[in-house]
Write a protein that binds this DNA or RNA. Structure first.
Lengths: 412, 412
DNA sequence: CGGTATTTGTTATATGGTGTAACTTATCGC
DNA sequence: GCGATAAGTTACACCATATAACAAATACCG
């Protein structure tokens, strides 16, 4: 997602120039929510109109963007031809393995979901090879459907619930699956689907999906903390639209930051971890909700109980919110990223958790008087990790369309 | 230091190409510890020899790099001409205001300190306008000396002990100086010394100096946490050689992260802050060292006492180390940056603090079994913030030598 | 209803930076 | 002293963008 500390970059040649501008035009068309003309792109990028025209022609030929039927005109002068990212031409697969399901989506450059398939299944203590073989089966099925519909599959991304090395070569540990030291790429083996799949942590990819949704609503907010509530608690630190993964790719382990002195021991071996107070299992237990059979909707039950005035549920949420707030205050003091997104299972609890979180933040964040941190539920829903996985693949095309064009037409 | 969330970048033209490669060559020569030839640069950058030659000629004309007398040759073939950053030609001023002194250095592209001047002075509760006027006086004196020696001053950087907005336009709060809401650029007014000076937090600039020192010893380690011990405790998060400043420029406030529940109240109004347990004033007090008259060397006295076996001093250091370790464990869990540099007043205590810090880190950092975090005293010494301030200005020249060349020869 | 202003998109040409190939220069090894 | 080898330079081709001029399509105005 981001490169590890690289020593020094490469020299730029004329073709790098072209690649750069090609990507710039593609991203400019893609990022601007509504269709824009070649002239608009020229203004936005400070490139000249002839240059933009040339680049746009190539991108149209590569099926990255399309010309729309000329819209109802306005103002003087010749009306421009609206351009938009192509829909249904280039697509990516977003796959995910999680505790209680396994699934995949097909997403195109507009962000539309062309196909989806989710198989609920209890994957606690499962066999990695078998599960990932099933995932491959699911993926090839989706890919076949997409190509049948005339789309080209540019690649696949895989979201996993655990510590993934930053280059995606290795899943070190997935506590809830009971997996350890897996090579996901070898086991899924999607070599026929283009380049090596992107493999990353589920929270980071969900955050990426959130980032592209936020780009439409609030283009200024390109950095935030995405908190993913589950049995464990993960976070993704998004800087300028890109998750920051750390030295090895293991950043964001806020579940084991200290929330409170003492308390029951955490399964990590330490005490006082946030997870003990604000993990979904812990919230459910404190609220007196049975979580054994129906983990997915336990938070819905807690919410319902709390809204009905159940004391245990209210107290459980308050305790979780206070713990989250204490930890997040430290995070904001450390990073000065005053925007917190509550995602995954937390999304439905967000309005209830907010008061306690906000209270802790205003009490402890040094800069709160000048710039009070914002706390918000995630915009993206259930399948955000899969969507983010696909998005991350499509982003590589948008970042360097020339590479994709070279791949698709090596007939020179 | 790093830009705030920018919406979208500019289109690249042929001159951007040139600027990029000019900077790349300059940085390649500058970063490689020892002199290298044009052919070496070509190999390292993947540019061709003719291109490198052209760029090098321009950089020599601009006095950014120089040809050295041809060295004792080795191996077959025509010996190359060694290139190195020019010494004494282009220099930057690094200035600093801190609690008990005010000073400046003149640094050239090789990192050599050509001149320095430090005036000890008690600046607690001082008058900003008067102090910064004195700083301007000091700066112009240093600049005059530099130009008299034949150097061109490319600009100035100013290090301040407080919350500085990320664009350097405003010092929000410097608790130890008693300053609040200052426009440092207007008050220092160094307009005749090139472009607007870079203004930033003292810890961030010291970290930058540390980063360039580490580049020589360990080029792989481009990301680390620099902890600056003082009455307050600041930190700079260096990612890929660049301090990360956060949304407003106020990142790194670890002094007010929670170290321990309860404890005496912090002057920030909260309780349990790290500063209460590990700030230098607090360490000195706990060790029973009088800090009133001689704050600068109080840590030396604590160290001496601890090494002599004084119980109070040993306990004070142990308490501070445990608190630091607890907070830093959270930081490493959050960011996965397993390298911690103890700087400023902590540097001399580092060997004594390390055991307690390391103990807390191994106990609480999730990834410690795979990748134990490293804890190290800072390499850079007393004047690191000033040096970093100058360095940051010189880095702008290295990043874009074309801009400097345009400034110096606008005779077209 | 026709002419003008205005803006989009295209075409033709100029500019400029890098790559390629060949050449010159300088050293080593025999 | 001669060939091998590598550094640096020169001459030229290539290619991407800028500039300028032009064609096309609409609105505005008399």
């Amino acid at each position: 997602m981001n490169p590890p500390d690289r020593p020094e970059r490469h020299g730029a040649t004329q073709s790098s120039l072209r690649e750069h501008n090609l990507g710039l035009v593609a991203r400019t068309v893609g990022a601007s929510g509504r269709p824009i003309t070649r002239a608009d792109v020229a203004h936005l990028t400070s490139l000249t109109r002839p240059t933009v025209s040339r680049l746009v022609d190539d991108l149209i030929a590569a099926r990255v963007i399309v010309e729309l039927p000329t819209a109802p005109t306005e103002g003087a002068g010749r009306p421009g031809i609206p351009l938009a990212p192509a829909s249904g031409t280039l697509v990516a697969l977003g796959l995910e393995v999680n505790v209680d399901y396994l699934g995949g989506v097909v997403v195109d450059l507009t962000g539309a979901i062309l196909a989806a398939r989710v198989e609920p299944r209890d994957l606690r203590a499962s066999e990695p090879a078998a599960v990932l073989a099933d995932l491959k089966h699911l993926a090839t099925g989706l890919a076949a459907r997409a190509t049948a519909a005339g789309a080209s599959v540019v690649g696949a991304g895989i979201a996993l619930p655990g510590l993934v090395d930053s280059d995606g070569s290795r899943l070190r540990l997935a506590p809830n699956l009971g997996w350890r030291d897996i090579d996901p790429r070898a086991l899924v083996n999607l070599d026929d689907l283009g380049p090596a799949p992107i493999v990353a942590n589920e929270a980071d990819l969900a955050a990426l999906a959130e980032a592209s949704l936020m780009r439409s609503t609030d283009p200024a907010a390109r950095s935030f903390i995405y908190v993913s509530g589950e049995i464990g608690i993960g976070a993704s630190i998004v800087l300028g639209g890109v998750p920051f993964r750390g030295r090895h790719g293991w950043s964001g382990e806020i579940g084991h930051m200290r929330a409170q002195a003492g308390g029951p021991p955490c399964r990590c071996g330490s005490t006082g971890c946030l997870e003990v107070f604000a993990g979904t299992a812990s919230i459910a237990a404190a609220a007196g909700i049975d979580t054994a059979n129906d983990g997915a909707d336990a938070m819905g039950a807690v919410r319902a109980a709390a809204e009905a005035g159940d004391d245990a549920a209210v107290a459980a949420i308050r305790r979780a919110g206070a713990a989250l707030g204490a930890v997040l205050a430290d995070v904001v003091n450390l990073l000065d990223i005053p925007m917190i997104i509550l995602g995954n299972r937390y999304a439905s609890l967000a309005t209830l958790l907010e008061p306690a979180i906000a209270e802790a933040l205003t009490a402890r964040v040094l800069s709160a008087p000048w710039a009070p941190p914002a706390v918000r539920p995630a915009l993206s829903g259930e399948r955000s990790a899969m969507i983010g996985a696909a998005r991350s693949v499509l982003d590589t095309v948008l970042a360097d369309p020339a590479a994709w064009m070279a791949r698709t037409a090596p007939r020179a």
